[in-house]
Structure formats: structure tokens, C-alpha cells
Amino acid sequence: MRTFWFFLCLAGVMLAGCKKDEPKPKFEGPFLPSNFPQPAYDLSQNPVTEAGFALGKKLFYDPLLSRDNSIACADCHISFAAFSHPDHPTSHGIDGLFGRRNALPVQNMLWKTGFFWDGGVPNLDFVPLNAIQSPVEMDELPDQVLAKLQAHPEYPALFRDAFGSEKVTTAAFLQALSQFMAMLVSANSPYDHYVRNEPGGTLPGEALEGLAVFQQKCAGCHATDLFTDQTYRNNGILSDFTFDQGRHEISTLPDDIGKFRVPSLRNVAVTAPYMHNGKFKTLESVLDHYDAGVKDSPTLDPLLRRADGTLGIPLSAQEKSRLLAFLQTLTDEDFIRDTRFAQ
């Protein structure tokens, strides 16, 4: 009898063990951190599903999107660099051609009100079309991409799984990519744990001192926990913008010459080089620029003009080292190592 009960218990434990292993971890949509504002993207019209995210990820890593099937989104947006292009001031696209601007990180896209350095695209859904059609990036026609996907041995079934039809439509194609990009949320840096008062959320003393300097001298533009106020500003990188007029090329307004979107500083330590033209290789050189390298031009941001007529934001050596310590705390290791997002 005791043997019977023993085996019954054993069977029970085994079954329970099996049961515990069986269910796949439930798919969770994008992380919406409590220290972020409301998303700008309307998730209700394109809810992120497991199948839609998987399709979007496959598309993001697929060179089929380019004219000669050679360049994928992920070639210039690399996961370990917060989906930016490390060591490349500007990136090489199709036929080895170089673009004019430094590839931006693909992160926290749900909160952005404008995309690219000039804000030329106002809705996340239409971001990929810009890269696909750019003659120096993928140089492909969107209808050709749809035709290639439709003729592909795997994609029609993946579109059916995600959107209920094997027909590869523009909307489904763009929505899948949006679902992948929607998931790329970076908000688990040491700074986030600190600011959300989470367990272990402490920052080294020098970083805290850096945060105080940051709030005083940098947060005028790198505002909120997105670390950007999402405006367009001329930060004195150049005095002549003939080569690249920035926001002016979108708006046509004279006041916008030389203005570019204030970039987020999240993961800034792993997204070198810096600025729209990739001019600076290190964060030290960025701080030196703001301290003493700002160049004048008619649209230079007023925050970079001092009362005495000199330009820039004065930073002592100590303030710079404190700022560097703080900026390191914006690196989100969970995000850049997340296996859901990497290839």
C-alpha cells in the first residue's frame, strides 16, 4: 500500500513537472515604462501580436527589401549598438554608396513624433519606406518589395498567421515592421532602475553628481526620460549647411536651416559616432564641442548663446567627468542583449 501511494505521488510530481514545462511563455507586447509619457503611436490600430512581431523581425533582418537583395534594415541598425551603426559616421548602403547622415538608433519608437534627423516622416508605419526608396540605402520600389514577398516560399503563410490573409498588402507589410520596432523599448538602464525606485536602483555618487549637472545644463533640450524634447535645433556643429540643410529640407522654412532633431541620449555610450554627420567619435569630444566648439550661424539655438556673446555651454573638467559618468548609466544592457530582438 505504501508503495502504491509512493508511486502515485511520484506520478503526480512528474505530471506536475511536465505541466510546468509545457506552456510557452505568454507573449508580452511592448514594455510601457512608468517613467515615460503616453506613446505617440496608436497601438490600438496595430496591436502587437506574437505572429506580427515575428514577421516584422524577419523583415527587419531580410535583405530582400533592397533592390539587389543585398542590404537589410539590420545592416545599419545593429542590435548591440541599440540598433544604430557603430563606428560609421554615415552608413554605406546599396552599391557601397554612403548616405549623408549618421544612422539613428531604433529604440523607443512608440514615443517619437517625428522620425529621421529631419523629422521627414511623422508616423512610425512609414519609416521603412524612406530607407527602402532611398537611392543610397535600399533603392527599391515598395511595390517590388511586395511582389518579392508575395512570391517568396515562406512569407505568404507568415502574413496569413499575422494578419489573416496570405495577400501581402502595403498595410500589413508596414504594420509588421512597426510591430517589431514597437517592441524595441529601452527603459531598463541603471538610471531607469534608479528613477523608478526599483530594487538595486542606486547610482554611483559621481553619476548622481553628473545627473545634477545634466539637469542644469543639458535637460533644456534632452528633456524628460526620453532624453529629448523632440524639437529641431541647430547645435552649432557647422556654420555652413549647404551640404545638408536638415529640417529646412522638409519644411522649406528659412528658420529651419541647419536644424536637426534633438536625439535621445539613451544608450548614448554604445551609439558612437555622434551628431547628424557623425562628426564626433567620443562623448568627450561631444562635451568639448558644447563647452568650446560651437560654431555660429543665423539659426544657432538661443540656448547656446551666452549673455556675454560667447557661444556654447561652459563645462569644467569636473563637470565633464561627472556628465560622462552619468551618461554611462543610460546604457540598457537588457535591451542591447535581448535575444527576442537580435538575429
Binding site: 529621421f116 516622416v121 508616423n123 512609414f126 519606406l129 524612406n130 520600389l141 515598395p142 502595403t170 498595410a171
Partner: peptide, 15 residues
Amino acid sequence: DPATGANGMYWSWNA
């Protein structure tokens, strides 16, 4: 539809 119906009538860079 930028890829089909509006093909040639859509700017992707200044969307």
C-alpha cells in the same frame, strides 16, 4: 496606398 494606388504620387523622405 503608397506602394500601389499612390505609386509615383508619394514622397517617402518627406512623407
